[in-house]
């Protein structure tokens, strides 16, 4: 029973981190219909940001996520300004191709600048601490990251649903021309959405170095899972992404323990196929 609970806790904690990474992607995807292939590499850049702040200035990831969130907002906005802007209104594939190039670029620039070494912050406030209740172990770094993720997701959701900006975003997502007629500066909305998407993954990446090593390839699997989660939840649906991410986390954890670790991602990807067979537009899609 304790093992069962432990597996569940691990799954949920991981799932929440996936959710934050996926929320950024979902936002961009839902509003602009753009597949950002460099999303995993955004995460990697954010992790490096947080790592270097920690290594050079001695600031802990519990604080430096603010900087990496802001930095990734910038990167996201720049991506839009310099690349995506030119692909809007063209086939979705061209944006995918461009971001594939961007992914390659970011990965190798980091490799060039920071060397391919695995880097880990050895002394962090949270590092290695655990809370144990009734035999179930909660690793503190994961717990804090997961809770942070939950807070950010709720904030983003609130912003999209309840603020004027959010309404503008929704309007733009539904019908760009109509939104423009209503006086919404869609160009700025796109810029903002891309920035916000970057911020989400930036915050996630900012928190991760308190337990995960940074290297140029670290974003790969996160990026892949984010794709699957966003599609599974239904494009553009933040609750969908959250729910799907938790599901992915749990399936990963349970199949990893009860079937075999090597099959855990097989189970995750199979789950996606299963879900879209039943609901071709994702769990919360319409």
């Amino acid at each position: 029973m304790i093992v069962f609970l432990q597996v569940m806790v691990n799954g949920i904690l991981n799932g929440l981190v996936y959710a934050l990474v996926a929320t950024g992607l979902s936002l961009i995807w839902g509003v602009m219909d753009v597949i950002n292939f460099a999303h995993g590499d955004y995460l990697m850049v954010a992790m490096y940001t947080s790592f270097w702040i920690g290594a050079l200035l001695g600031v802990d990831p519990v604080l430096s996520w603010i900087v990496s969130g802001a930095f990734l907002f910038l990167i996201g906005a720049l991506t839009y300004k310099l690349i995506i802007r030119y692909t809007v209104g063209r086939s979705a594939i061209s944006a995918l191709l461009a971001t594939f190039g961007l992914s390659m670029f970011l990965k190798n620039v980091c490799l060039y600048l920071f060397s391919p070494n695995f880097r880990l912050l050895s002394k962090t406030v949270l590092g290695g601490k655990t809370i144990e209740t009734g035999g179930v172990i909660f690793p503190v770094p994961q717990l804090v990251t997961a809770l942070g993720a939950l807070v950010v997701i709720v904030l983003v959701y609130y912003m999209v649903k309840k603020t004027r900006l959010g309404w503008a975003i929704q309007a733009t997502a539904m019908d760009k021309e109509a939104a423009e007629l209503m006086g919404i500066d869609t160009e700025r909305i796109y810029l903002l959405v891309f920035g916000l998407g970057g911020s989400c993954v930036g915050i996630a990446g900012g928190l991760l170095p308190s337990y995960l090593a940074v290297h140029p390839e670290v974003g790969l699997l996160f990026g892949l899972l984010a794709f699957v989660i966003v599609a599974m939840g239904g494009f553009g649906s933040i609750p969908g992404a959250l729910f799907a991410a938790l599901l992915v986390g749990l399936v990963e954890s349970f199949s990893g323990f009860f079937i075999a670790p090597v099959f855990k991602y097989v189970a995750v990807f199979a789950l996606y196929l299963l879900v879209v067979m039943v609901r071709p537009k994702g769990l919360f899609g319409w």
Binding site: V3, Q6, V7, N10, N14, L212, L221, F222, L225, E252, S253, S255, G256, F257, P261, K264
Partner: peptide, 8 residues
């Protein structure tokens, strides 16, 4: 991304 299942 995590090695919980493996270690467990």
């Amino acid at each position: 991304t995590s090695m919980n299942s493996e270690v467990q």
